[in-house]
Amino acid sequence: MPIDATLPYDDQNIFAKVLRGEIPSRKVYEDDHALAFHDIAPQAPIHILVIPKGAYVSWDDFSARASAAEIAGFIRAVGHVAREQGLVEPGYRLLANIGGHGHQEVPHLHVHLFGGRPLGAMLPR
C-alpha cells in the first residue's frame, strides 16, 4: 500500500529494522551514511536498494533536513554500488518512489538500482 511521504518517520518500518540489524539483509555496501543491499523480490537480474542511514521518509525530507555530509555520502554510495556491480557500462536505472502517487511502500527514503539486462521504456507511452 502506498504511503504518504509527508508523514512523520516510522522507526518500525522494515528498512529501519534492517539498519538496526533486526531483519537480515544481503549487504553489498555500507559506510557511515548509507547501506546498500539486494532487494528480496528482485525485478531485474541486479536489483539493489540504497538507503540513507538517517531517519528520512522522502527526497523532500532528506534534502531539507540531512547534513551536507549525509547527502554527499548517500549520492556517493549510489555511484559506488553502480561501479562495483559493473553497471556504469552498459547502463542501469535508478528509481525512487515517493508518496502515494509514486507508489512508495516503505516510509524510508530509498533508491532502487536496476541493471543486468536491457530494461525497456520506463513508463508506457
Rank of each mutant, 00 (worst) to 15 (best):
S25A: 15
R125Y: 00
A36H: 02
G21F: 03
F62L: 13
A16Q: 08
L109N: 07
N13M: 06
R125K: 15
R76T: 08
I3A: 07
D32K: 12
Q12N: 15
V81W: 01
D4H: 12
V106E: 12
H33K: 02
I46V: 15
D31Y: 00
F15W: 05
R117Q: 15
E30W: 02
P24K: 02
I48D: 02
R20K: 13
H108Y: 08
E70A: 14
E30T: 05
H112R: 02
Q104K: 12
L109P: 03
Q85P: 06
P2Y: 00
I40C: 04
A64T: 13
V57Y: 06
P90T: 12
G120W: 12
Q43R: 11
D39P: 07
A82S: 09
S58E: 04
P124S: 04
V78Q: 14
M122P: 03
G99F: 05
V50L: 12
V50I: 15
N97L: 03
V111I: 15
H101I: 12
I3H: 09
G102F: 03
V81I: 07
I3G: 10
V18S: 06
A121Q: 12
M1S: 10
V78L: 11
G100S: 13
H47D: 05
I98K: 06
A41E: 11
N97C: 09
P52D: 13
A16K: 05
